[in-house]
């Protein structure tokens, strides 16, 4: 049986309840976390953000404002932002509240090297997770 204990200190949340900052562009939204938490310079933090975007072929949206991006692009950016936090788990909450397209799990794997990903969703979206290799907790 899979056991986990989540406290606010050990997971980063990806949710429509915590959106991207509208006044910042995509790369600034991602870089903000490392600039604040480890005092990384703007250039270095944005460099790391751009590397992550490049890995999944989204470098072209790096300097775009949020309203120019699709929902799926915004979701991946929120996921990258969560990766920037120094926490062991990424908790994705009801992604299909903001998405119509199916999330490509390979893209998430490409980005994530060492963190656990937990997706919380309702049964009505069960079919959207059919191709996932991971356990589904009912």
């Amino acid at each position: 049986m899979l056991e986990f204990k989540l406290t606010q200190e050990n997971y980063s949340l990806v949710s429509s309840k915590i959106p991207l900052i509208l006044s910042l562009n995509i790369v600034e939204n991602i870089a903000l976390i490392k600039e604040v938490h480890i005092g990384l310079s703007v250039d270095k933090a944005e460099g790391i953000a751009k590397e992550s975007l490049e890995k999944i072929g989204l470098l072209d949206i790096a300097l775009m404002s949020i309203d120019k991006c699709s929902d799926l692009e915004i979701f991946y950016v929120m996921f990258i932002r969560a990766l920037m936090m120094n926490r062991g788990t990424i908790l994705v909450e009801s992604p299909y509240l903001i998405l119509e397209e199916i999330i490509n799990i390979e893209i998430l794997d490409e980005l994530n090297q060492d963190k656990d990903i937990i997706i919380l969703d309702t049964f009505e979206n069960e079919t959207k997770y059919e191709d996932y290799r991971c356990n589904i907790i009912r």
Binding site: S12, K17, I18, L32, I33, V36, H37, R81, M85
Partner: peptide
Amino acid sequence: KELDTLKEYKI
């Protein structure tokens, strides 16, 4: 809710 984002990410 952008203020919630800042709070969630400890900014």
